[in-house]
Design a protein around this nucleic acid. Structure first.
Lengths: 245, 245
DNA sequence: CGTTATCTTGAACCTTGTCAACACTCGTGG
DNA sequence: CCACGAGTGTTGACAAGGTTCAAGATAACG
């Protein structure tokens, strides 16, 4: 979905000040001059191709990453068990905040499509956050937001039915697209059904069945990974409705 | 020679430097003089009685709280749905980090027994974290750790059977007691079964049944809320074992 | 000592997982 | 350009784990 441009030319575009995501990303509240300082610690990385690892579970923690384009998934394997998909990352979101404490990444992060990221070495970020209260604050906020999202996810996993989970997932995704300037009603899923299932704690078959059912109910129109939301109200209703038993 | 300390006599015990939790709590890595600065921003609070709110969902965020003694639960209500218990807090743990972003607490926090907390006004903490890199780092780490724990919880909720959930819960709890200097084999649950069920995404009845089964298997000896772990190895095995189907 | 909350146990039901088979898609090489 | 094959997605039948409903036992508390 994302055009792969040759890099030389892109490099100057890769500055925070000209980045279209600057209103969502970490430096969002910085003044111009502060942003320059922030910009200076960023390392640009070659785009990841679909399926490539940004890092692997257990790798030494050195940096957090801001997604510039594309999308990634985080996968955690524990013991002899099946892998669990613990997060999807879209542009402007920060990857790796859960590794600060233990100094290695608690899960592997893999590109779902061609993806570019900005690498932010954490020790430099920490230093800079000392000088720039706005940056520090933004960092606290990012982590706090992730905590809140996690709680919402726990709620989903422990209390919602399969229908409600998928509805919630789609509503949330739609909202994230909207915030990024894309259509909230028509988008492409970059992940296979199996990943959605793993994320939502459902079997692939269940995901598939519910997608079909939502189509039958004319809530969605789906063709492969292309999704159209036909009845957002209904979908939201599904998503929010709890077991009103 | 003993230096003359300025102190409010009543609160003498409540100073970080003499707090038995200092090796686990937020100021854990601070030097003496830095700890004084930290100590100065703390507000002591009257103990909460069982069932009392530390704050309610939606209240304005002003402070994070460190638990000194006792325990608390966090409850989130969303929409018209049933409440969901999203966290238990034990001594030295930080309450309220998930509120930084939105400036309101995303859930109510309620004492499970008589509980004392240290109130840490967040704006003061933020200012101080500018001057004290160790403190800042500890704050990042606390949040990061919580993120990691959340991921583990999601994994539990989406992939583990009821037996595995309860086993995980008890192993984790045991470990938390051990770290705090209490027996990891014999302790008292401060929360009712219903809370455990809500936290683990299970019906109360299921929790009860499994407790009974674990007793029959001589893994536990339970009398009301008093728990003894008779076979820790077995319990851990249960907890870690994934669906090896 | 009674009243209420908490906990336990049993039985029926239901949602979702599992197994199995088949359809579709896409990229690769012949 | 087509054929093939692996990966991905769909659908059905069945089993199982967990919820729900119901009732009783126990513990907590004024």
């Amino acid at each position: 979905m994302e055009p792969v441009r040759r890099r030389r030319a892109v490099l100057h575009e890769a500055r925070c000040q000209t980045c279209s995501l600057s209103s969502l990303c970490l430096p969002l509240s910085l003044e111009m001059e502060d942003m320059d300082q922030f910009d200076a610690i960023i390392r640009r990385r070659a785009p990841l191709k679909k399926g490539e690892h940004l890092f692997r579970q257990g790798d030494d923690f050195t940096s957090v990453y801001a997604v510039r384009s594309g999308s990634l998934k985080q996968i955690t394997s524990e013991g002899a068990g099946v892998d669990q998909l613990t997060n999807f990352y879209l542009p402007s979101e920060l990857v790796g905040l859960d590794a600060i404490d233990e100094r290695h990444y608690p899960g592997s992060v893999i590109a779902l499509e061609t993806t570019t990221v900005c690498e932010i070495p954490f020790d430099r970020l920490d230093q800079l956050s000392e000088k720039l209260p706005e940056l520090r604050n933004q960092l606290y906020r990012s982590m706090s937001k992730e905590l809140r999202d996690d709680r919402r996810m726990m709620r989903l996993l422990s209390r919602k039915t399969a229908d409600q989970r998928l509805a919630s997932f789609l509503v949330k995704l739609s909202d994230r697209f909207r915030r990024r300037g894309y259509s909230p009603y028509s988008f492409r899923l970059s992940m296979p059904r199996a990943d959605i299932g793993s994320y939502l704690g459902l079997a692939v078959e269940t995901v598939s069945r519910i997608v079909s059912r939502f189509q039958a109910q004319e809530i969605l129109a789906v063709s492969g990974r292309e999704v159209q939301i036909l009845n957002m109200a209904k979908l939201q209703q599904f998503a929010e409705e709890e077991d009103v038993s």
